[in-house]
Amino acid sequence: MKQDKALRKTLSQFEPQLPFGFHDKVMKKIHLEAELQKKRNYILDILVAGTVSFLLFAGAIYTLNNYLGYNILKIFQGLNIPSQHGLPVSFYICMSFIVLLLLGMDFKLRQIIKKGPGKGPV
């Protein structure tokens, strides 16, 4: 079986040539695919960061309420600072707390994602 000279000779005559420009055409497709992958990773990163942030925040509220007996809403209700713009101060405090928490988590997650292999920067 190792010899089969006639079979080898016939097959050696079959040398199809790739058309001119094949390499460039494929590389163009590869670059497009790389761009798509980057976009997909970016969207995935945002989704993961958003979900994790939400879960952490919900977990923190749940822990404070049920395990530490620390009711954030009651504390905010207890504050009675007059507001000139119609919205209660407790609203601003609550929002700034959430914003700070999310910014912190966003910073941490970006650092983790940048360290991961094959992931582009967010």
Binding site: D4, A6, R8
Partner: peptide, 14 residues
């Protein structure tokens, strides 16, 4: 499959 110089055979193999 070892008759490598027979052109007709090579065509038949193809």
């Amino acid at each position: 499959l070892n008759l490598e110089n027979d052109e007709k055979l090579l065509q038949n193999i193809k």
